[in-house]
Design a binder for these strands. Structure first.
Length: 143
DNA sequence: GCCAACGTTGGC
DNA sequence: GCCAACGTTGGC
């Protein structure tokens, strides 16, 4: 299974709101690369939830509960979304600085391509981040 | 198809 | 709030 990282500005959609909603449509992705990642997502895939701009830290883990489907509001037919639900909040929020400071995360797409709103996370990076956030590895694994 | 101009994003 | 970096758009 694959792992991901979803980025959102808390002012537009925060982790707290995801928890309150219980589930949400992850739409509004326009970047083709990010869309590719969305398309590649499978049921049960886990994704870190990162707050950009405000906080700039990983705040939790979400799970894909519905795979990619087209955005009905999009006339070009290219845009789409997945549905996610919250799985676990980070015990320790991991900020950009900490991630930058960790050499194991040097290859992280988030750090290399800060503007990519959805990006893949390798298995090793995932384990590292699980440790850093204090999230049980089980929470990061598919059930 | 290239490149300049513009808009948007995100870190500081 | 500012500015730098990147993506996208549109004119040629």
């Amino acid at each position: 299974m694959a792992h991901w990282l979803l980025k959102s500005e808390p002012s537009s959609y925060s982790w707290d709101r995801l928890v309150a909603d219980g589930r949400t449509h992850w739409d509004g992705v326009r970047n083709p690369q990010a869309l590719n990642s969305l398309r590649a997502m499978k049921l049960g895939d886990r994704a870190f939830f990162y707050h950009s701009n405000e906080g700039k830290e990983i705040v939790g883990v979400a799970e894909v509960v519905r795979t990619f489907y087209p955005d009905p509001a999009d006339k070009t037919g290219k845009l789409g979304m997945v549905d996610i639900k919250p799985v676990a909040a980070a015990r320790v929020k991991v900020g950009l600085k900490e991630m930058r400071a960790n050499s194991e995360l040097a290859g992280l797409s988030l750090l290399k391509q800060p503007r990519l709103s959805v990006c893949p996370v390798s298995k090793d990076e995932w384990s590292t981040l699980c440790k850093m956030t204090g999230i049980e590895k089980e929470a990061g694994k598919s059930s």
